[in-house]
Structure formats: structure tokens, C-alpha cells
Simulated assay, not measured.
Amino acid sequence: MKKIIVFIIFFLFACANPAPNFSPGGNKLPDGTVGQAYFSEVEITNAVVFKENVGVNISPMDSGLRWKPEVITLEREGQKKEEEDYHHIIISGKPKKTGEILIHINGYTMGTSTPGRKIDKVYRIKINRAGDNIMH
């Protein structure tokens, strides 16, 4: 009987569909400065995501920032192939004005033995004037 209970517990844990993890944690990305290059990265782990099931919205739209997935170059038998990795989101550009920029990552993960889970994460970036102290 004990063996059956242990088997059931392991089976349930194996089929569990854990929530995606985001790095950095919390809801803030590093501050930026108007007119200066900005670069930050968000990593999604514990999930399977593809171009078709994840999106990133930046507001305001005219903030000067944009996003893209990391591009990985794979080489096999002398041939190179580039692939986009949506587990690694890159935020970059030159902020146009002071204030707050919101980065909203949304969509869903792909499931294997269970359905996928919803992705809904919002980060804030504070944009300062040149000469202001930047807190990271």
C-alpha cells in the first residue's frame, strides 16, 4: 500500500504544470536616461514559449524602446542557422522622455502532458533626465 501511495505522489508531481519563472523577479527593470542607450533582459524559465504564444507590449508606444527575442546561431555540419529564443527577451533603445515605461509580457506556455499556463508579467522602467541620479 505504501508503494502505491508513493507512486501516486510521484506521478502527480511529474504531471504538475508549474508556473513560469521570470528573471529579474519583482516588477522593476533598471532605470534609464532620456537620449541614452538602454539595455535590459528578461528571462523566462520553467516554461516552453514560442513566437506564436508570447507577446511583448511597450507603453507608451512612442517611448523609444523596443523588444526582440535573443537570436542564437546554431552550427551543424558546417551550416549556420539563426533561431529566435523567446525565453530571453531583450529590451533596448533610447528613451525619448522622462516618466514611466511599462513592459507587458503576455501569452501562454506550451504544455506537454498538461495544458499550458497563462503568462502575464508587467515590468516598470523609470526614465530620468540626463544628470539625475539613476537607481538600479
Rank of each mutant, 00 (worst) to 15 (best):
M1F: 14
K2G: 13
K2P: 04
K2Q: 11
V6Q: 10
F7I: 12
F10P: 00
F13H: 06
F13V: 08
A16Y: 15
P18Q: 06
P18E: 07
P20Y: 05
P24R: 09
G26K: 09
N27Q: 08
N27G: 09
N27D: 13
L29C: 01
P30M: 04
G32M: 03
A37R: 10
S40R: 05
V42K: 09
V42M: 04
E43K: 15
I44N: 02
T45K: 01
V49A: 03
V49L: 04
E52V: 07
E52D: 12
E52Q: 11
V54T: 06
N57E: 10
N57C: 04
P60C: 00
P60L: 00
D62C: 03
L65H: 01
L65I: 01
K68W: 04
K68H: 10
E70P: 02
T73F: 08
E75R: 07
E75P: 02
E75H: 02
R76F: 14
K80P: 00
Y86I: 07
Y86T: 05
H88T: 08
I89W: 03
I89T: 00
S92E: 15
S92F: 11
K96C: 02
K96M: 08
T98W: 02
I101R: 01
I103H: 00
H104S: 06
N106H: 13
T109M: 08
T109Q: 06
G111R: 06
R117V: 08
K118Y: 11
I119G: 02
I119L: 15
D120Q: 06
K126M: 09
R129F: 10
R129P: 05
A130F: 11
I134S: 12
M135D: 15
M135Y: 14
M135E: 15
